[in-house]
Computed example of a mutant assay.
Amino acid sequence: MQLKPALGAIVAVSMLAIVFWQQTHLDPKAPDAEFTTLSGEQIVLRELGGQPVLITFWATDCRACIEEIPDLIALHQQFAHKGLQIIAVAMPYDIPSRVKQLSEMRKLPYTVALDIEGVHARAFGDVSLTPSSFLIDRERNVVSRVTGRFNLADWRARIAAM
């Protein structure tokens, strides 16, 4: 039974190594990305120039992602009129009908996009853990990346300073 604690430690260290690798291998410029929203609209990231953008990768079966929704709504309510675009990108394994159902049920006021083929997850540094969020400034620089829940007060301050 000594194997279980050792296995848990190996998994924890592996996850930390993945997060560290992702943090250190991220291009400072946001990738060119064209998102398809639930309604079929195309949003091209480079065409949002001059606006801050928050991109969050999430899944309907991710508890932390669901817990983060009120924070995303709060940021949308506080900063949308100042140009902040929030794009919540559903992970490739998520079922589009579940994404749509949850989005409608929660009345999400920000953009929800699908990443059926995993193109965006790869473009943003092979995102595999959710939630993973990226704050992009007006010049399209990734100024913050958080794996796990972001700190609402910290991101409010960062967005307000943009």
Rank of each mutant, 00 (worst) to 15 (best):
D115R: 00
F57Q: 01
H76G: 05
Q2K: 14
Q2Y: 06
I73H: 04
A161I: 12
V143T: 10
P52Q: 04
D126E: 10
C62Q: 08
I73Y: 00
D32S: 15
A80I: 01
T130H: 02
T36I: 14
R106M: 15
V89M: 07
P5Y: 09
C62K: 06
D94I: 05
Y93H: 09
E34F: 01
A121I: 03
V142P: 06
L16D: 10
G83A: 07
D71E: 13
L54S: 03
L135D: 05
L75I: 12
S14F: 14
S103M: 07
L135G: 09
P92M: 11
E117L: 08
L108M: 14
D137R: 07
I86K: 08
L152W: 02
R63N: 05
H76W: 09
S103N: 09
D137A: 11
R145I: 01
A9K: 11
E41T: 04
E47W: 01
D137E: 11
P109N: 01
F20S: 14
R156K: 15
E68M: 08
I87M: 09
V13N: 10
L16Q: 13
R122H: 13
K29C: 03
Q78V: 06
F35Y: 05
L135R: 03
L114G: 09
K4Q: 10
A12E: 11
E139V: 06
E117K: 14
L38G: 07
R122N: 12
G50M: 10
W155F: 10
G148Q: 04
V89E: 06
L48C: 09
A12C: 00
M1V: 10
F20D: 14
S132G: 00
F20A: 15
L38K: 03
M105K: 15
P52G: 06
